[in-house]
Structure formats: C-alpha cells, structure tokens
Computed example of a mutant assay.
Amino acid sequence: MPDDLSENLAFLCSHYPSIAEICRRIGINRQQFNKYLAGQSRPSRANMRRLCDFFGVTEAEMLSEPSQLRSLVAVRSQPLAAPELAGPMTHVERLLRASASLRRYEGFYFRYFYSFSQPGRIMKSFARLYHVDGRFYWKNLEPIREDGRGPATAINKYEGAALFLTNRIYIVEYETMQANCITQVTLYPSYHSRIGRLTGVQTGGPTRRGRRPGASLVALEHLGHNVDVRKALYACGLFRPDAPEIPEGIPRLVRNVIPDEGHVLEAEEP
C-alpha cells in the first residue's frame, strides 16, 4: 500500500516531464524508484538524501502528511509581495546601476565545461545573452545526449541575469523547473573586435553529487546573432574531450587543474 512517502514522491514528480528524467538526473535506478512510488520499498539514507536534495525539501518534509507537503510547496510557489521584495531589490538595483553595457556580448553561445556528474565528459550546452529595456538576461539549455547520439533524453533549462562589473562579466542563473539550484559564472571580457571565446570559472551544486558545492572552468564560444537554433541544440550534449564536436583548444581551456604552486582554481584568458 502506498504511504505518505510514496504519495509525496508522486506529487513532487508531477512537477517534472517524466519519471525517467528524474531518475537520470538523480542517478537512481528506475525499477528501484518505482518501488518507492508504489510503497514497496523505502530509500536508503543515502538515496533519501539525494531525493531531498533534488526536490529541494528536508527529510522531515518528505515524510510529512501529503496535505502538509502540498501546502508547503504552494506557499513556496507564491510570488513575493512588494514589501518582501523591497530589501533584496535594494542590492539588486545597486548592482544594476553599477553594471556597464553588455550589448557587444549579445547573441548565442556554445558553453563548455567538464560535467559535474559524468566524469571525463565535457558538457556542451546552448545559451543566449540578450537585453530587455536595457537589462541583460541569460538563458541556457543543456540537452542530455550521450556522444551526440539520438534524441536528447532530457533538457536542463536555466535562466538568469548578466552584469558587467569592474571589467568582469557575471552571470547568475537558476534551474527553472524547481528554482532550487543556482550557478554563478565569472568571465573575462574580450578585448578583440570579434568576441570569439570567453573563459572563466563557475560554481554550483549538481544534484547527482548530493549538491556538494563545486567549481569548474568554463568557456563560451560566441556564435553570433543569427543561428539555426534547432541545429545548434542538436550539436549539444555530453562528449569525450577528443570528440569532433568539441573544438580544438576547448579541452585545455576547461581542464580543471590547480598547479603545484597554486592554491585556487583560476581561469586563463583565451
């Protein structure tokens, strides 16, 4: 018989396109997950932690009465009132006023970095930097496709904002499905007439690693303002560093190595 846990899991899963995508992103066997949903088995402590990390709830909330969890999710989904936004927006507005224009950086990009959850593979995603009313925004799509074969099994979607502060480009993005994961990217600007490549460092907490904070080097390849979006998305996925889909020089730019005399992960200028 299903219990509170299985009912809560089913409710949380209803916010995603498919069970298969959830299992892939968490790294849990589909058959085992189906047993959790049916109330036939309970997650181990490790798997419970991974489930809670992924759905953005505590273990106590996961095990609470279903009506209580639904109410909690509904409250978290409600838009904030103006008084609640006033404090945080003070800091956002100050940064926006200090930001220089990013107009020359607008357009589409391929984004490259070593995957946090698939060791040895480079993630190649598709992103866009654009402006609305003088503010600059960012969208990033990560089609999950092994070695460029076949249709994507899932697409991770991120949105955020971009700033140009003290000669560095900053991008803050969040995962749009649950809004429980933030990535912050810091990039060198380009001093060439053509943008070409941008390099930097990004931080985040991927779900398959238990949301342990991590950092990686990242490279952006500027594609211009007019691209075939469908073709660009089909070129994305997880690839070996020597795959033809990964341009020459990119593996070196995103290789995460701290030199013997170093103490922190630092990006080179391209």
Score class of each variant (00 low, 15 high):
I171L: 09
D147Y: 09
D147E: 12
A161I: 15
G160T: 07
T166Y: 13
G160Q: 09
I144L: 03
V172D: 09
G148K: 03
A161G: 03
N156S: 11
M177C: 12
I169E: 06
R149N: 13
N156H: 08
D147P: 03
E159D: 12
I169R: 00
R149E: 13
R149A: 14
R149K: 13
Y158W: 13
E175H: 01
Q178C: 10
A162S: 13
R168K: 14
T153A: 10
K157F: 10
Y170F: 15
L165D: 04
E159P: 04
N156D: 15
L165R: 03
Y170I: 14
D147I: 13
G150A: 05
A179E: 09
V172E: 11
M177E: 15
G160W: 01
T176S: 08
E146Y: 10
E146M: 07
I155G: 07
I155Y: 05
G150M: 06
L165I: 14
Y174N: 14
T153Y: 02
V172Y: 12
K157H: 10
V172A: 14
M177V: 15
Y174A: 13
G150S: 08
R145P: 00
I171P: 05
D147C: 06
I169P: 05
M177G: 11
G150H: 01
I144Q: 05
I155W: 00
G150P: 02
P151S: 09
G160V: 07
G150C: 01
L163M: 08
K157Q: 15
E173K: 04
Y174D: 09
A162E: 02
P151A: 12
L163V: 05
L163D: 05
I171R: 06
A162I: 04
E175M: 02
R145D: 08
I144E: 05
E175T: 08
G150I: 00
D147R: 11
I155S: 07
L165N: 07
N167K: 05
A179P: 04
T153H: 01
E146W: 04
N156A: 13
I155D: 05
E159N: 11
A179Q: 06
L163E: 01
D147M: 05
E146R: 06
V172R: 14
P151T: 13
M177W: 05
A179S: 07
N167T: 06
Q178D: 14
E175V: 07
V172T: 15
A154M: 03
E173V: 14
R145H: 00
